Amino acid sequence: MQIRTGIGVDVHRLAPGRPMTVAGLLFVDEPSGPEGHSDGDVVAHAACDALLSAAGLGDLGSNYGTSDPRWSGAPGVDFLTETAQRVRAAGYEIGSVAVQLVGNRPKLGPRRQEAEQVLGEAVGAPVSVAGTTTDGLGLTGRGEGVAAIATAVVHRA
């Protein structure tokens, strides 16, 4: 069995008044959210990049460019569902995805299981989600943005 791994990273600036959508969840009490052509869901986007990388299908930008209006404002979960379909169409099955959210906000821990369920349903495979901070360092530490790092494992169908 051919097993492949992929890595994905996504970073978005936070902007006041934008909805905070991360890991497929809306955090309604957050005063700012990620800027972007879509909803800016760094967790979903990093997972997409990891899956695309593992399957040798490029990256988020080459698959869903900002010039395509149908992805304008689209939820990250929609990207993830479509990405999983593209990975399977390329002849791969998805083993698992793991994503680390990097930032001070939102607090993911209380909603981790909910995030894993939503993302797992979109991928059709197990997704694990964790969160960390940078102890005040860099753009995530200063609260200027959020980031996510993901890995994915796929194998030939």
Rank of each mutant, 00 (worst) to 15 (best):
G103V: 03
G124F: 08
V118R: 08
P110G: 07
G131D: 13
A89C: 01
G91D: 05
V129A: 13
T81Q: 14
A84R: 05
V127H: 01
P75R: 14
V97T: 01
G109K: 12
V77R: 00
L101N: 03
E82R: 11
L101I: 00
A115Y: 03
A98W: 12
S128H: 11
E121Q: 15
S96E: 13
E82K: 08
G76R: 10
G103M: 02
A84I: 04
E82G: 01
G91T: 09
V127W: 02
S128Q: 14
P110S: 08
V77H: 04
L119W: 06
F79D: 04
Q100G: 13
R112L: 09
V127G: 03
L101E: 05
L119C: 01
R105M: 07
V87L: 04
N104V: 15
V99A: 09
A122R: 08
G91Q: 07
P126A: 07
V129E: 10
F79M: 04
P126F: 09
L108V: 15
A98D: 13
N104Q: 15
L101C: 01
E114I: 14
P106Q: 03
A98S: 15
R105H: 09
L80A: 04
V118A: 06
G95E: 11
G91H: 08
P75K: 13
G95V: 13
E116A: 05
G95P: 04
Q113S: 13
E93I: 07
I94A: 00
G103F: 04
P75F: 13
G103R: 09
T132Y: 12
T83C: 10
V87H: 04
T83M: 06
V118D: 01
K107S: 14
Q100R: 15
Y92V: 08
D78I: 03
A125V: 02
G76P: 09
V97K: 03
L80E: 06
V129L: 14
G91E: 08
V102A: 13
G91M: 07
G120L: 00
G103Y: 03
V87S: 05
S96V: 10
G131P: 10
L80D: 04
A90H: 09
Y92C: 00
E116L: 06
A74E: 04
L101Q: 11
V123Q: 08
Q113H: 11
G131E: 14
G131N: 12
G124W: 09
A125Y: 01
R105G: 00
V127F: 02
L101S: 05
S128G: 12
T83K: 04
E114W: 11
V127P: 00
S128L: 12
G120F: 03
E116G: 00
V123C: 08
R86I: 11
A98T: 15
T81N: 12
E121A: 14
G120T: 04
A90R: 11
S128A: 14
T132L: 13
A130E: 14
R86T: 11
E116N: 06
G91I: 07
R86M: 12
P106K: 06
L119V: 00
P126S: 08
K107F: 11
E82H: 10
A122D: 05
G120V: 06
Y92L: 06
G95R: 10
P110R: 07
V99D: 01
A115M: 06
T81G: 12
V102H: 13
Q100E: 15
A98F: 10
A130W: 12
L101P: 01
V118K: 05
P106M: 02
T133G: 14
A122I: 08
R112Y: 03
L119H: 03
V97A: 06
